[in-house]
Design a binder for these strands. Sequence first.
DNA 1: TGAATGTACACCAAGTTAGTATAATATTGC
DNA 2: GCAATATTATACTAACTTGGTGTACATTCA
Lengths: 141, 141
Amino acid sequence: MRITQEADYALRAIYYLSTLDAGARASANVIAKEQNIPLRFLLKLLQKLRDAGLVESFMGVNGGYALSKQPKDISFLDVIEAIDGPIYINRCLYDPEECNNLGVEYCSIHKALHQVQEKLKKDLSSINFQHILDENGSKEV
Amino acid sequence: MRITQEADYALRAIYYLSTLDAGARASANVIAKEQNIPLRFLLKLLQKLRDAGLVESFMGVNGGYALSKQPKDISFLDVIEAIDGPIYINRCLYDPEECNNLGVEYCSIHKALHQVQEKLKKDLSSINFQHILDENGSKEV
DNA sequence: TGAATGTACACCAAGTTAGTATAATATTGC
DNA sequence: GCAATATTATACTAACTTGGTGTACATTCA
């Protein structure tokens, strides 16, 4: 019942980009150092964030990465699902064929888990990076 | 972000025991057949449920397993944590020493995740097996 | 005693996770 | 054009987790 370390890194990479001026770029090297993320691992996960449309990348000298949306329009759910894939809290909800009980439709347990899952996704989608910026800004030491 | 298959089996084992008369026993063999769970795997997870105080076991002929509480007093969270261990949705929340950011206390991302985690646990603890019985009873075909 | 049951411990194959290695490609500035 | 700075692409790997099996033993009841 965990998000992967990779998704945790991704949240922090997006957070770091959120702290920059709108449209500003940061190289993977800088993000890696600032957020203490292994560089090569970061490079790989940034591809996923790009494929998901959350960041844009720029090659060459002065290249790097920038958010492709405003911080307020990027949720935790967006980032986590970009990295880990869609959230399914159990196997049956992911692939009903694998349900070795009666099937999701007829199984009260799986129905109940489904409701929990949807609440979880709603909670994660209600947090965006503007919230995080605001919280940090007001508590700056 | 999933519960294990083992936890899913455990929910169904507890559910099956809930359908019996209060205090009634069922052998692992019967539970395995009724719920389509591999027997040896079931035996192992029943130990965890016993260690967690959710079921009682009885050895010998006419032995088996019985709930040690009423269905209404066993929540999904109880069962899932008995099998998978405490729920922590990311590594930092499990072991703050492993947080390679500033630490949970000073990291807004991890604080936000913590809140999501607590909501998730609350949701899971709000579902008990009497609910599931009631739902199934009213929809019996 | 013997059949039916649970207990304990060890083992294992497959998949996932977190990370590394290497080589290639694109952009900029001189 | 060339060097330097970046990203991209592909492949590899060690460690861990998951889902499951095997074997031997202990307990209870008839």
